[in-house]
Simulated assay, not measured.
Amino acid sequence: MSHDHNSAGAAHGNVKQYTIGFILSIILTIIPFGMVMSGNFEGQRGLLVAVIAITAVAQVLVQLVYFLHMNSSSEQRWNVIAFIYTILTIAILLIGSVWIMNHLHFNMMI
């Protein structure tokens, strides 16, 4: 009974990829943390929120590429499709919920 660890759809990284991903994750965590903790951006909350949002999205992309090994290769196609479906479902639920709550709030105020 042998175990095949190189089955289709299972991508494995190397130490260099994991190190690059780890360093990028640390940098993308330190940037917004440093901005918030410095207190220099209290008058510029819009900029602070934008930087936090941009680094959060970049952090998710780094995690997906370097640690979950999602890419455009044929082996990862079903994983990418499942991820996109999940993101779309969550977006529809969130946007729909906010729309419904806003609509109900508007109708209750009349």
Score class of each variant (00 low, 15 high):
M1E: 03
H3L: 15
H3S: 13
D4I: 11
H5L: 10
S7E: 14
S7P: 00
A8I: 04
G13P: 02
N14M: 03
V15I: 09
K16F: 07
Y18S: 14
Y18L: 14
T19M: 10
T19F: 09
I20R: 08
I23Q: 01
L24R: 00
I27N: 08
I27P: 07
L28H: 06
T29N: 06
I30F: 11
F33D: 03
G34L: 04
G34R: 04
G34S: 08
M35D: 04
V36L: 03
S38K: 05
N40V: 05
N40Y: 14
N40D: 13
F41A: 07
F41P: 03
G43C: 02
Q44W: 05
G46L: 08
L48H: 05
V51N: 08
I52G: 03
A53W: 01
I54E: 02
A56L: 14
A56W: 13
A58M: 09
V60W: 07
L61Y: 12
V65M: 01
Y66I: 03
Y66F: 15
F67H: 11
L68G: 01
L68W: 05
L68P: 01
M70G: 00
N71I: 01
N71D: 15
S72K: 07
S72T: 12
E75Q: 12
Q76R: 12
R77K: 10
R77E: 13
R77S: 05
V80E: 07
I81W: 10
A82S: 09
F83I: 03
I84Y: 03
I84S: 07
Y85A: 15
T86Q: 08
T86A: 15
I87E: 07
I87P: 01
T89Q: 05
I92C: 06
L94M: 12
G96S: 12
V98I: 15
I100R: 13
H103R: 11
N107Y: 14
M108W: 11
M109N: 11
I110E: 14
I110R: 14
